[in-house]
Write a protein that binds this DNA or RNA. Structure first.
Lengths: 236, 236
DNA sequence: GCGTTGTATCGAACATCGTTCTATACCCGA
DNA sequence: TCGGGTATAGAACGATGTTCGATACAACGC
């Protein structure tokens, strides 16, 4: 049994039924999404433009709009393809907190493997089949932890929001070069905090080290710990 | 005593010292930022383009780049002007959790008053004077709550991340029209969840109501509760 | 079999954006 | 008075998503 389309999706017309020309196969939504995926994995999200996709399929940009409403709709389709609900473990009441964390780590790894996708994901209500399956499985874990319904529901909103936001932030070039969060940048930042006027910023100066400690992974681990602990606390 | 520039900021040249032509005052970084701010409040962030700013100042787009390195640097300057550290209360050990929440609410209100700013804020290390003052005051509240240094430091990263991310998400048009999270859209979404095949999505179907309950404010309140509770739990 | 009709295709163009090139117009110091 | 540095901008570059309009092709009615 297939999942019905969400009501606000444009009805996809099942056009080009007969075409079947041999020399170049007809352009379909599937082929577009497929091309977008390989391009995404090879060169990152910024390379996935309508023009580039058209070139990749051997045509012009206008041809895309017969099969996809928008760049945004294409993003939706691509994102859904990138989501893998099987990475969310089967609910185990004994380990629900660790399972939540593991789910978030898996999602984070996915974003890292597909740089730029986080930006496109932000603010999307999960409606694709794989996104729905992910929510379903996450709900199972939360219910196994005896989290009340309303809290579990909101948690399904909060968890991807956090993971997506952190991945998005991480994917942005920090200054203008590429440094990201390299050791040199951290060093610079730490020195800067330490050099601030003490009268105005006593705590920033005193805490320059902890403020700049920990790489992206530790920041991420801290965040998921806070969230899981918070959910557990509110569930009592 | 003024705050030194962060090391990676381009040295601002103190050019155009003598100019002083009466008919049209010289273009300065201050006037650019000021124009950007009024434009921002009147028409939202999307209207703040280099061209539009130039027009507003009665000149061409190229003239901006003598006083501002980048659109990104301009964003930094504008954001710093929009941040108001006085909205973060003086630390009170008895009420630190509520004070944290109040700070986050204030930040959220700021984002709502300046639509679009959240997008530009994401992924910026807070280096402007007002941003630094905000971090300093937040640290004071955390220390008043006896939160360990390392946790407090990471909390200063997590808190703005959450608020910014939610504000960003909220600022995005949901589908393509404007509906945002109007009652009709919620209704549609609830109906959609409820209509899914029960064998595949028993929890989504059963929890369609809680999943779509609560407006933006309740989602926000839930998030800050989770975060504050989580920080408190980890501090023990 | 032939013309009509609908539709998939796609080159070209539109309206943006941030940014850079290059030429001008100006004030200052010599 | 006369350079020379510099603040100013007009025009253009390259890129984006998107739309227009013409074309070519397949299926259907007669």
């Amino acid at each position: 049994m297939s999942i019905p389309d969400p009501p606000w999706h444009s009805r996809r017309r099942t056009l080009h039924g007969r075409g079947r020309r041999i020399p170049r196969p007809p352009i379909t939504q599937e082929r577009i999404v497929e091309a977008a995926l390989t391009l995404l994995r090879r060169e990152g999200y910024d390379a996935v433009t309508m023009r580039r996709l058209a070139t990749e399929l051997g045509t012009g940009p206008a041809s895309m709009y017969a099969h996809v409403e928008n760049k945004r709709e294409l993003d939706q389709l691509v994102i859904n393809e990138v989501i893998d609900p099987t990475l969310i473990p089967d609910a185990d009441p004994e380990r629900w907190q660790e399972q939540l964390k593991e789910s978030m780590r898996a999602m984070f790894r996915m974003f890292r493997a597909h740089p730029g996708v986080a930006r496109a994901t932000m603010g999307l209500v999960p409606t694709g089949p794989n996104a729905l399956r992910s929510v379903e499985r996450t709900l199972a874990i939360l219910k196994a932890g005896k989290v009340p319904d309303q809290i579990a529901a909101w948690a399904c909103d909060l968890i991807p929001l956090y993971v997506t936001a952190l991945a998005y932030e991480e994917s942005l070039p920090q200054v203008e070069g590429d440094p990201g969060w390299g050791a040199d940048f951290v060093e610079e930042l730490r020195g800067y905090f330490g050099s601030l006027p003490v009268e105005q910023f006593p705590l920033l100066v005193a805490m320059a080290v902890p403020l700049t400690s920990g790489g992206p992974d530790e920041r991420f681990e801290f965040g998921i710990s806070v969230i899981v602990e918070g959910i557990a606390a509110l569930s009592r």
